[in-house]
Simulated assay, not measured.
Amino acid sequence: MKAWFYSFEMALLAMVGLRVLSGLIELTAAGLMLRFNSVEKAVGLNAMLVIIGPTIFITSIAIGLVGMSDRLSLSKLGFIAAGVLLILIGIRK
């Protein structure tokens, strides 16, 4: 029987771990909102989540780019970086 876990790249596992962590944080916040039963506290928790989401996104993208850097040309990395920059510009208020 062949082990399935050895074929995953470390960058991929780090990205998956960040997404799982982000999901757990979101679920914890949802549970706290229900527990507190207060719109004011729910808004406060949502305000804290605003910081976590983009941070996880940017970190995950950075890890992915570093993981792919040996397989992509410099011009392709530039296009990817430009795309990420456009996404960040697009989500600004």
Rank of each mutant, 00 (worst) to 15 (best):
L18D: 03
A47N: 11
V43C: 02
L27C: 07
A29N: 10
V50Q: 14
L24V: 15
A81Y: 07
I91M: 14
R19P: 00
L86I: 15
K76I: 11
L72P: 02
G17W: 14
P54D: 03
K41T: 10
E40H: 04
V50N: 11
N37C: 09
R92T: 06
W4T: 08
D70K: 11
Y6N: 13
K2T: 08
A82P: 12
F8K: 15
L34S: 06
F79M: 11
T28P: 05
I91H: 11
S73W: 01
E9Y: 09
M10V: 01
G78Y: 05
F36C: 00
L32M: 05
S38T: 00
K2F: 06
E26G: 05
S38Q: 10
L12D: 08
G17H: 06
V84N: 05
I63G: 04
L13M: 11
S60F: 00
T55M: 13
W4R: 13
I87M: 15
V84S: 06
I91T: 13
L27R: 09
R71H: 03
R19V: 07
L13C: 05
M1E: 14
M33S: 05
L88N: 02
Y6C: 09
A47T: 09
L32A: 01
A42D: 01
A3Y: 12
A29I: 04
W4M: 07
T28R: 04
L18P: 11
I87E: 13
F8Y: 15
F57N: 02
I89W: 06
F79N: 01
F5H: 15
M68D: 00
I91C: 07
T28C: 04
S38M: 09
G64L: 11
L77Q: 14
G17A: 15
I63P: 04
M15A: 12
E26P: 00
V16R: 03
I51H: 02
L45W: 04
A47I: 07
M33D: 05
T28V: 01
I91W: 13
S73L: 05
L65D: 03
P54Q: 09
G31E: 09
R19M: 12
I61N: 02
A3K: 12
M48L: 11
R19N: 11
I58K: 04
T55S: 12
T55G: 10
T59P: 02
L85H: 01
S69Q: 12
L34E: 00
V84T: 13
V50A: 06
L12V: 13
F36H: 09
K41Q: 08
R35E: 10
A29W: 08
M1F: 06
S75I: 14
L86K: 10
K93R: 12
G83T: 13
M10D: 13
